[in-house]
Amino acid sequence: MKNRLILYVLVLVILFSLGFTLPTDMRSLSIDIFIFAIYAMAYDILYGYTGQFSYGQAVFFGVAAYGLLLPVLHTNTNLWVSLTIALVITVVFGIVLGFLAVRLGGAYFVIITIIFNLTFYLIALDWIWLTGGDDGLTFRAPKIEFGVFSLSLYDPVVTYYFMLSFLLASYLILKRLISSPIGKVLIAIRENEERAQLIGYNVFRYKLLAYVVSALFTGLSGALYSLRTRYASADYFNIALSVQPIIWTLVGGAGTLTGPIVGVILINPLIYYIGVWWKHYLSIIGALMIFVVIYSPKGIVGNLINKIEKS
């Protein structure tokens, strides 16, 4: 326990000091990692903890990105209001889509989430009046306001700490959720759905809850990403964006919460640096996915935990 506390403090100190010491490009990469780490954890709640394999989380990423962008662009609302609007809209979408997808589970769930994703992408490409289509829309990032203070998101150091604080807050909330009785029920559903049902839990309601929580945090990630890029396009609904959390979670370790973050930290720089010199880097990702599920299905953190428990 004491060791763990030291570890936490150490990680915090490192993360905090990196904010002003990192060179520009690495800081930029770190900001992306913070944002996507939220997405990765959100996916872990859905797949890692509840066993619902979604292949369409980009829907919520995109919905929230536009949920933030459109109010700012058209009515110039301030940051906190637009972020709230984005998250509320995402939750509404999460409830409606979840209601249809979650009931059936298994293969139906996978297929339905894919269909949602592909259809939303088509709509985003088609409704140019709303989304700007393939070209997308740009906007001026609103200031971060706390009462009389205000900070500009055009300063990368500010953005670094801003995104980092969202990541830490998300981690704490989700960690709290999975350690709570609700989290135990979710794990019980993953391990044996019928048994959880027989014990008397309303499995549908818990699975829907996991789906909506996952949608909410995926949305947070999408909204923050549009805030960082000051831009959103139909590509924010791209099905490729739904594959990302699957890779992060599997590489890092499903059902560990920190595993998917490790996945982001390893995969994103890899894509960033390989993508520069080889445009077919996606085939490496494809091969990696096949390799991981066949040879290391527990992921990095999953294997580590296994080793620690054995010793």
């Binding site: 797949y47 394999f53 996915m289």
Partner: peptide, 30 residues
Amino acid sequence: SIIRPVEGLPAFTVVVTIGLSYIIQQSVLA
């Protein structure tokens, strides 16, 4: 070669076929 090892694990077969899909798409693109 690649589906047999994960047979009976529906989520993993999806992952494997996504990986395959990427490899086919990139090979055709190249």
